[in-house]
Simulated scan of single mutants.
Amino acid sequence: MATTQPARPVEPGGAAAPAGLPRQPGPAGVIRYWAAAKAAAGTAEEPYAAVTLADALDAARRRHAARPEFARVLLRCSFLVDGDPVGTRDHTTVQLAEGGTVEVLPPFAGG
């Protein structure tokens, strides 16, 4: 007779979390804000724990919900992930790495 065990949460990358431990939100790194993004966030940088760029930005929007300008500034920004431009790629497809860096770059005058 087969027994059924409760499913364990799956970690990013497909590994099951150890029994009794909650699922981790994803790799941890830092988001750095520049110029108008820095002013809108009220900080130069903050940590992320997310699997994708979309997840990290959604969490940042929630953290800064009391600062409505923050979400508006993000709409105009470009992003670098570990030094690589994201460009027009869908943010849900941009994977983040443990110890990685997301640079949030608003449009700059003259460039």
Rank of each mutant, 00 (worst) to 15 (best):
R61E: 07
G87V: 09
P85I: 13
F79Y: 08
F108P: 12
A59Q: 03
R62N: 03
R63H: 04
R72V: 03
A109Y: 11
A59G: 06
G99Y: 15
P106H: 15
E45V: 03
L53S: 06
A71M: 01
D82A: 07
T43N: 01
T93D: 13
G42D: 10
L53G: 03
R32G: 02
P107Y: 14
H64K: 14
A65C: 05
G83W: 10
V104W: 03
A97N: 15
G110F: 12
F70Y: 04
K38N: 15
A65M: 04
A36R: 04
R89P: 02
Y48M: 08
G87Y: 08
R89G: 10
A60W: 06
L57K: 02
A97H: 15
V73P: 10
L74Q: 01
Y33T: 00
G100K: 08
R67E: 12
D84A: 13
F79C: 06
A56I: 06
D84Q: 11
L75N: 06
G87W: 10
G83S: 14
A109F: 15
V86Q: 10
C77W: 05
H91C: 03
E98H: 15
E98S: 13
A37Q: 04
P47A: 12
A36F: 01
K38S: 14
D82S: 08
A65I: 03
A44P: 13
P107H: 13
F70L: 13
T92Y: 08
P106R: 14
A41V: 12
P25M: 02
R63N: 07
A54F: 00
D82P: 15
A35V: 00
W34S: 07
E46Q: 07
F70G: 03
E45S: 07
R32M: 08
E103N: 13
A40F: 15
G87N: 05
A56W: 02
A66Q: 05
G42E: 11
L80G: 01
E46D: 02
P68H: 03
K38Y: 02
A37D: 00
R32V: 09
A97V: 13
L96S: 03
V73K: 04
T43F: 00
C77R: 08
A44G: 08
P85N: 15
E45N: 12
A44E: 08
G87C: 11
P85Q: 15
D90N: 12
R89Y: 06
K38M: 12
S78E: 13
A71T: 02
T92D: 07
A59N: 01
T93A: 09
R72L: 10
V73N: 05
V30Q: 14
V86W: 15
V73E: 10
V104N: 07
A36M: 03
E69Y: 10
A40H: 08
T101P: 03
D84P: 00
L53Q: 10
P107N: 15
W34A: 06
P68N: 12
A49P: 07
Q95Y: 05
A65L: 06
D82C: 11
A41K: 08
A49G: 09
L80H: 11
P27M: 13
R62K: 10
A56V: 07
W34Y: 13
V94Y: 00
